[in-house]
């Protein structure tokens, strides 16, 4: 039994407060750049296909992780898709209670073999198997990010 079990508040102890003084800038990569430019400029979703493995990657990849082939067959997928899993979150990114619970889903865009995670709104009682469509920001507001899709909703 450790003595620390008697401590209710670590702030009562001598301690030095520290943090990692870094932030990160994640490049989208070769495939990601193409995916997000297409979303920003044309409001379309691009996957990439491995003919040998007969698999359409979403988001797209410049290589097939299954067989290592270089991929250059780009394929438009979606914009509509099918819900494969759905949940409602009551706690947020910092663990506190959300004022407005948020519904999230794994969506299989038509023509893609992989799933996309996104928010769901305006879709009371949405269940697995439901058909959904994206609600995009207007072109001038889009900046090439996953948030260019405001949310998906039932169709």
């Amino acid at each position: 039994m450790g003595s620390s079990e008697q401590i209710d508040r670590v702030t009562d102890l001598r301690a030095w407060p520290g943090e990692f003084p870094v932030s990160h800038l994640y490049t989208m990569g070769i495939a990601g750049e193409r995916f997000f430019r297409e979303l920003k400029d044309n409001g379309r979703f691009l996957g990439s296909r491995c003919a040998a493995c007969d698999h359409v990657y979403l988001p797209p990849s410049i290589f097939c992780p299954r067989c290592f082939a270089a991929l250059d067959e780009w394929k438009e997928v979606g914009p509509q898709g099918t819900v494969r899993a759905v949940t409602t979150a009551h706690r947020g990114v910092d663990g506190t209670t959300l004022k407005t619970p948020e519904t999230l889903a794994l969506i299989q865009l038509d023509g893609a073999d992989d799933l996309l995670t996104h928010r769901i709104k305006e879709s009371e009682g949405l269940e697995i198997g439901a058909r959904v469509a994206p609600v995009l920001k207007e072109t001038p507001e889009r900046e090439g990010s996953i948030l260019d899709v405001r949310y998906f909703r039932a169709v």
Partner: peptide
């Protein structure tokens, strides 16, 4: 500064 993601860099070397 590479544009490639880490997995893309890894694939270039590994392949």
């Amino acid at each position: 500064r590479a544009q490639e993601t880490g997995p893309e860099l890894a694939w270039l070397a590994a392949s």
